[in-house]
Design a protein around this nucleic acid. Structure first.
Length: 468
RNA sequence: GGCGGAAUGGCAGAAUGGCUAUGCAGCGGAUUGCAAAUCCGUGGAUCUCGGUUCGACUCCGGGUUCCGCCUCCA
């Protein structure tokens, strides 16, 4: 029985889908004006695993995963101007780049990726509904349209804030046109220099930050759906405001379960755009195999902070090498099952997607495979098949073991080193030296390969190699 | 200032009112021509001070330190 930590009440609770034949998941995706960084990688990977595991539990076709793209906002307008690039050119460029990174990380494509600019009708319609219901108003100066926070009783329930505290906080921007400093903008009037706008009953303009997610999620998944996810930094104000907008507009409960993943940190500090202390995904992929990055992310619980360092990535690589080594040389057949091993894995995943514990179960399985591999190859093969299948729910071990072990580790490594043919030739040469008990000659070849990062392993079935 | 989260062995990271994961690194052994890989074994931890309890790392209270949100952010 799957339990999920619901951030709405800060408790782990049994997950009960509204409709088990169509479990609906919405995740706040990217605002596309720059390359994705490791924080984005974490959201992508974490919710990719949620998506995969929900499909294991409820059925491959019984889950709808929506991850939006925000392709109009202040940062996009600003960046387009700086680059001397049109907004659509900029956003399409970074959507393409995002997909390059996501594909590299083995992220399964969501069922739908709605874009704000393609849902303007729904956005305007929702704002109109809010105005009609008295939850929103046009500013005193006849300009921007605001959401009236005081009209929504539950405001602050997700982020644990109360409106009194928020008002007394010094950080709320005071804008004359607002009735209340807490009110936030739904529709911004067009400014000529911004060069883009859409028509609305209040005049040409563009949506505020939060309304696009309310409009897109409800139009894609219905007024009331199961899970809404995103990074912890979206909890307030973004998700709080989404709840206020959606529930006021529809009159229904918006979302049952809120999930937020923790931050990626650098030197114990949040990795963020404003601090400028971030690594882009592609920077990291120059040095590390994408699956290593994925392993690193999944080796800690999604709600914990995740400290980035080369050392941790190196350890991830070593760990993944152990798992792939267990799989190497064994036949994989799809139907294999073993209730005991599967139970350990699913018990971990059922407990709020405890991926570190699930990964630990994979290592126990790998150990068992290595133990059986010589004495009972068919059992070893069966267990290897199970290992591969279970790891697949985490998006791990999906490649051929040799492709991982012998492949270039990170893009930069690809250019250097011996070709496979050269390696095979040297191994054959060494084999002959060994047959003649020419240990010095044999070791010379091994050292030569080691200098190129090639490690030889003399197993019972011959000599194998891998890149370090 | 308000609100919230966290502190586990050398490092990373789970779990649990008593049986104390897992990975990397270390140590001993098996295996190997020697290695590597693998297997077997092994040392080592629960920030601090109180309390509850037969028993707490786990529950409660005080303290310390760190982090986050309250402003754009995944």
């Amino acid at each position: 029985m799957l339990k999920i930590h619901n951030n709405l009440n800060k408790q782990k609770e049994l997950f009960t889908p509204i409709d088990p034949t169509n479990v609906r998941l919405y995740v706040c995706g990217m605002t596309v004006y720059d390359y994705c960084h490791l924080g984005h990688a974490r959201v992508l990977v974490v919710f990719d695993v949620v998506n995969r595991y929900l499909r294991k539990v409820y059925g491959e076709k019984c889950v709808t995963y929506v991850r939006n793209i925000t392709d109009i906002d202040d940062n996009i307008i600003k960046r387009a101007k700086e680059n001397g690039e049109s907004i659509p050119t900029l956003t399409q460029r970074f959507i393409d780049e995002m997909n390059v990174d996501a594909d590299a990380l083995g992220i399964r494509r969501p069922d739908s990726e709605p874009r704000a600019t393609q849902h303007m009708d729904e956005i305007v319609e929702m704002i109109q509904t809010l105005v009609d219901k008295g939850s929103a108003y046009q500013g005193a100066d006849g300009g921007d349209v605001y959401y009236d926070v005081s009209s929504f009783e539950g405001y602050g329930k997700l982020s644990g804030k109360n409106t009194e505290d928020l008002r007394s906080g010094a950080r709320v921007e005071v804008v004359e046109a607002k009735d209340d400093p807490l009110d936030f903008v739904l529709w911004k009037m067009a400014k000529p220099e911004e060069g883009t706008s859409w028509p609305s009953p209040w005049g040409e303009g563009r949506p505020g930050w939060h309304i696009e997610c309310s409009a897109m999620s409800t139009s894609c998944l219905g007024n009331h759906f199961d899970i809404h996810g995103g990074g912890l930094d979206l909890q307030f104000p973004h998700h709080e405001n989404e709840i206020a907008q959606s529930e006021a507009a529809t009159g229904e409960k918006f979302v049952n379960v809120w999930m937020h993943n923790g931050f990626v940190r650098l030197d114990e500090e949040k990795m963020s755009k404003s601090l400028g202390n971030f690594f882009t995904i592609r920077e990291v992929l120059k040095q590390y195999d994408p699956e290593v990055v994925r392993f690193f992310i999944l080796n800690s619980h999604y709600r914990s902070p995740l400290n980035y360092s080369d050392k941790h990535l190196d350890e991830g690589k070593a760990a993944l090498t152990t798992l792939y080594t267990a799989l190497r040389g064994l036949d994989i057949n799809d139907g294999a099952e073993d209730a005991e091993f599967e139970k350990h894995f699913t018990a971990a995943m059922d407990d709020d997607f405890n991926t570190p514990k699930a990964v630990a179960a994979l290592f126990v399985l790998a150990c068992e495979i290595n133990r059986e591999r010589d004495s009972d190859p068919s059992t070893a093969s069966k267990l290897a098949s199970i290992l591969k299948r279970l790891a697949g729910y985490l998006g791990l071990l999906e490649r051929d073991p040799d492709a991982f072990l012998q492949g270039a580790q990170g893009e930069a490594a690809g250019a250097k080193g011996f070709s496979v043919d050269a390696i095979d030739a040297l191994i054959a040469e060494r084999l002959e030296a060994r047959a003649n008990k020419d240990w010095a000659g044999s070791d010379r070849i091994r050292d030569e390969l080691a200098a190129q990062g090639i490690v030889l392993e003399d197993g019972g079935g011959g000599t194998t190699w891998r890149r370090e």
